[in-house]
Design a protein around this nucleic acid. Structure first.
Lengths: 435, 435
DNA sequence: CTGTTAGCGCATTCAT
DNA sequence: ATGAATGCGCTAACAG
């Protein structure tokens, strides 16, 4: 039963603490000072709730130090429930490592080890510590841990947006892989402008991540310096780069565009056009596309560039405009599947047969691409693979960094897959499933 | 020009530091000890790079303390460049507040204030500090700050997934609003199972966020206790709840379903069906839908439940199965626009006219909904508004928390908007744009 | 296997 | 307007 203990009591319970059965309270208050004992007992009588070392640890310490000859460890799980509810005016206080130590009858460092490296601690000790942790709901303060160890177990992922469905696979895989190794991922949304990216980075670096994942291309000189100065492994994804900061896991957008251009021309198209989002990667694909066209003598490629993130509506409008300006186009390659969907819808509305009169290609192989009628030709990227590889490479560097210094720059090309479907069938074939 | 300084030097530069022009070096090495001076000067000659108090602050301190009668502050911006590149074996070290203080000729606390509350520090001092900070690229260590102040300036957002385009508006607005007030947002992906949510929460709470945003319904008793025990403001979004943890910003999914049911019946449908994702919110909408049907005497509603996150492919398949089992259905309400897209495509393939023979409704009003042919009837949620309101309410609590204790539970209902489009036109009208 | 000692880098409190 | 002293909660290094 989920009870909201917060409402039952006049003050919040300390971080990670909740009421438990009291059992036999062995409150040797004489050892703690009369004042404390009075307050503690008062609380106990009133709330019968968990008792917490909290602010009183200074009083407890001497007891633990005194080590009476007999046994100052809890004799049963119930009598270790010893202390007092927080009463100070400045709000509740969290359970600390030290509190666990006192209740488990060991030193703080042993608790630390029992939790982070149980293999080097005696089994019985670990069990005892775990029991107390569980009972008090202790959650270690990672700020303190990071500060002391100089390792944050935190990896930052700076992405332009999370709205892009195409990135989310990557981020999920990245997160999972790191999670499995005990790292947390902290997302930073840089938006599409480089200005806020600088501020974001400042914030992110303040949290001293052990590594950084970047998505989204061009960084200012200042940003690059800051990153280099941070001295932590960096992996850039979703692109190969001519001047990588550290590692990259991605593919050549130029090659994708080139392959799309060739494919459309192979399908018999003679007047291909482009609909592109206004980001670097889409532009690179556009460049590759035009190169492929130029190689076969088609030097003029009508083109529409739209504000990112691109939408289906933009796709419809762009095709409309393209047709108005260049009525003879017979193929259009879009920088996202959403744009392509818009183009297909617009074509349908105008009675333009796809692919009979107009071939349409997208990018991303989103869920719906294969389900459309006609099914959409697109480019599939192993977004999950990118995320996984980025995580693994980062981890390798992070762990190595502990021992040695830097590694050699590493570039991973995951390639891409052009998925030819009905929306760009070779011209000779007439589609069967026209409606 | 973006130079990768990391590769120019055998060791990484310290966090936030990069080479700068040296100017006139006033290295009074006599004060620092011969050994240090020898090394420092050796480095300076070899790299001509930035000079860093770093590990040597203990040596510097006495100088700063001595306060020679003249002026121990930098006389110009160039001669304050004083120290040595990091040479210790245990790797580079970050610039600290103390380093800035030494170079700016003030105490650490003054630097702290100059950066966080410049209004209470003399203008000239702030300027001097800022200059040094800028030059050394100092980035404050937030772990230390959080530990000392017991405020992390961090808000956690725990969501099932970021793939869902429908959440991303909320998250973006949430992030923006908090960013504007100096808070960082930390995302946690809970997935769709409650098991990993528990572990995630443990990790998240370890970072001591000042507040938490939750999306995605049912929490285990354990989770609820942990959250209550954390004693920080919590806002649950995208739903109203019967047993809220703290605050909620959302709407009634039951009411959405009810409105959809009424709408379809109003359109003249007499045999409505459901296609739902297998999450609580979709289920609640389904319940409302069936209630609306029951109110008018339609007690049997064919239904397909699919694994979340739902896809267009699932929508196609689900409609196929529904038609096989209940060939007489004349309306289908889907728990997402993607499912609805699939249903529309499948209907098109089978020659079933939408809305003539089958009305289709979705949920979310995704980008493409209005662009489809026929345009999709759906439900629009102000996702951005949810994010903004969640942030504002959280902020209010966070700031208030500093002064007083808890606030009263707060429930905000942002409502919803049923957007009736061509896919559910009233039966009498025959659609004009059939293909 | 466990304990002792000594900080990590910063902000709070109380001085001046 | 600025500074000194103190400690946040934890872990590293070294003892035993």
């Amino acid at each position: 039963m989920a009870t909201d203990y917060r409402r039952q009591h006049p003050v919040c319970l300390p971080l990670g603490c909740w009421p438990i059965e009291l059992g036999s309270v062995s409150l040797r208050y004489a050892a703690y000072g009369a004042d404390y004992a009075r307050r503690a007992l008062g609380r106990v009588k009133r709330y019968v709730d968990v008792i917490l070392a909290a602010r009183y640890s200074t009083w407890i310490k001497p007891v633990s130090r005194a080590k009476p000859p007999g046994n100052n460890r809890p004799t049963s799980s119930s009598d270790s429930v010893v202390l007092a509810h927080q009463t100070s005016a400045d709000g509740p206080r969290a359970v600390r490592l030290k509190d666990i130590a006192v209740l488990a009858g060991v030193s703080p460092i042993t608790v630390s080890r029992a939790l982070s490296r149980p293999d080097i601690v005696a089994e019985a000790t670990v069990a005892r510590v775990r029991a107390v942790v569980e009972r008090l709901g202790y959650v270690p303060n990672r700020h303190a841990g990071s500060l002391a160890s100089n390792r944050s177990q935190l990896v930052a992922a700076v992405v332009p947006t999370i709205a892009n469905a195409i990135f989310s696979d990557t981020l999920l895989a990245f997160t999972s892989a790191l999670d499995a190794r005990g790292y947390q991922v902290m997302f930073g949304l840089s938006g599409f402008d480089g200005d806020s990216e600088a501020r974001l980075l400042e914030n992110v670096l303040g949290r001293r991540p052990d590594g950084i994942l970047l998505t989204g291309a061009r960084h200012t000189a200042r940003t690059r310096m800051r990153l280099a100065a941070a001295g932590i492994p960096i992996v850039e994804t979703w692109d190969t780069s001519e001047e990588p900061l550290d590692m990259t896991v991605g593919f050549s957008h130029r090659d994708v565009g080139h392959a799309l251009g060739q494919h459309l021309l192979d399908c018999g198209c003679r007047r291909p056009a482009l609909i592109l989002g206004d980001n670097d990667r889409a532009a690179a694909r556009g460049r590759g596309f035009k190169e492929a066209c130029a190689e076969r003598g088609y030097t003029s490629v009508p083109e529409k560039v739209l504000a990112s993130p691109t939408t289906t509506r933009q796709g419809r409008e762009a095709l409309r405009e393209l047709l108005a300006e260049s009525p003879d186009i017979d193929a259009v390659s879009c920088s996202s599947d959403l744009l392509a969907l818009g183009a297909i819808i617009e074509a349908g509305q105008r009675g333009i047969d796809v692919p009979g009169d107009l071939s349409v290609a997208g990018f991303g192989d989103l869920d719906f691409a294969s389900q459309l009628e006609p099914a959409l030709t697109t480019v599939r990227i192993d977004g999950q693979g990118i995320g996984r590889l980025a995580a693994l490479n980062l981890l390798e560097r992070i762990e190595k960094h502990v021992a040695s210094g830097n590694g050699a720059p590493k570039q991973v090309d995951v390639g891409f897959e052009l998925v030819a479907r009905a929306s760009t069938r070779p011209r000779p074939h007439k589609p069967e499933n026209r409606r």
